[in-house]
Design a binder for these strands. Structure first.
Lengths: 221, 221
DNA sequence: TGATAATTTAACCGGTTGGTAAACATTACA
DNA sequence: TGTAATGTTTACCAACCGGTTAAATTATCA
């Protein structure tokens, strides 16, 4: 019996919509801060304001909650990369991508941490997504970047590592938020830190990928 | 009674040295892959090849193992940043720092993941270290970088976000290793990925921080 | 309104987990 | 070699955890 009781009703009810939404919201909160193994159904139940058996009426297992959550979040998480446009101006595209990723780190830090927790611990529950949809999308965009480099529109560089670098630097502000705040100190760690980060990262990537070495006129090695 | 039985012997024995070492090595392995809450004393005991009560003879609690581990690892983890030399050539210093951090990500991924797990989950057990020694060291080095920028030796930029960017991009190869491998594919994900990463990151940071915009001759904004 | 479907809760279960007590085994040293 | 100090193991416990059962409650709608 693979389905939870709520999915075996004659038709999908309003209450089911609402409660499943409520549970996934709570699950995001808990899984993002504790990881899968570190989270308990009771914690999720408390955040959702429901009893544990009630949660299990809507999701048969803890794993099912996690799976549903990942599926829901993964798609929107990849949106910024999908918007990456081969026809656009390379510098503009890269700059926009950085800005969008940074906005997501600011506005959806829990989603970022959910993935970070999962990947960090070996991605046992999202391996398929990594090697499937994610890899395909990155491969596609890597081709675009490589073409830009070949055409001399940006510096010759490994497109995969460029994408990794953008992921790393932007998601850092969500995943390592505590550390960022600790280092910046209470005074400098206000919301302005995202604007400072955006300014720095634009400088770094735009200059860093400009064709030719900056002062020398040739690639710096 | 705050001390484990092994610490209440008349003097520190050879066996104590060896076993504590063995336990911390096993604890690193387990904590790095499962996080604190996700790790069990039994897991650590099995990796260490000892019985659970025997572990608890040397460390009173799971938390004590974790604390001892963090203390031991934190210091060496900050070494690369300490080597950052105010007197040296800025470009050389930054390049060396990136190289060292990347080597650490390659050679000590477990240490990286240990911290990543901890910070990601709100750093409840290392808050003091973040706001104390870490912040002090970063503040000190930020001053150096700021002086370089003021002197026109590198582009004007926020030194804190520069350090964050170096951390993020280098540690990414340890913390998100599974994802990196998945995206690169089995063929391209050999040990060469660290050299590719080093090449890319040098290009990015050296060009990115070079004074003046690369083609324009003025700062790109 | 009443009957039926849908939802919620209380009580419970077996396995796991962090940790303890005490008996047992080993080592070091006089 | 004997013995006291040190180290290890077996057996155990209470709390926690994922999940089930069945009964009670609430919503829906003819």
């Amino acid at each position: 019996m693979a389905l939870p009781r709520a999915a075996r009703t004659q038709r999908r009810t309003r209450i089911q919509e609402e409660k499943e939404e409520l549970i996934l919201e709570a699950a995001l909160e808990v899984f993002a801060t504790n990881g899968f193994r570190g989270s308990t159904i009771d914690q999720i139940a408390e955040v959702a304001g429901m009893s544990k058996p009630n949660l299990l009426y809507y999701f048969r297992t803890k794993e099912a909650m996690h799976r549903a959550l990942i599926e829901r979040v993964l798609d929107s998480w990849l949106d910024p990369l999908r918007e990456f446009d081969a026809e656009g101006n390379p510098v503009t595209e890269i700059r926009s991508y950085i800005r969008r990723k940074l906005e997501m780190a600011r506005d959806f830090p829990r989603e970022s941490r959910l993935f970070a927790n999962e990947v960090l611990q070996g991605a046992p529950r999202i391996e398929d997504a990594l090697m499937g949809p994610l890899k395909s999308l990155v491969d596609e965009k890597a081709k675009v970047i490589r073409a830009w480099a070949k055409a001399g529109k940006i510096a010759k560089c490994d497109p995969y590592h460029l994408i990794f670098a953008i992921w790393a630097t932007t998601q850092h502000y969500a995943d390592f938020d505590v550390q960022v705040r600790a280092v910046l100190g209470t005074d400098r760690a206000g919301e302005g830190r995202f604007e400072d980060a955006a300014r720095f990262l634009e400088l770094l990537f735009v200059n860093g990928l400009a064709v030719g070495g900056p002062a020398t006129g040739g690639p710096a090695v």
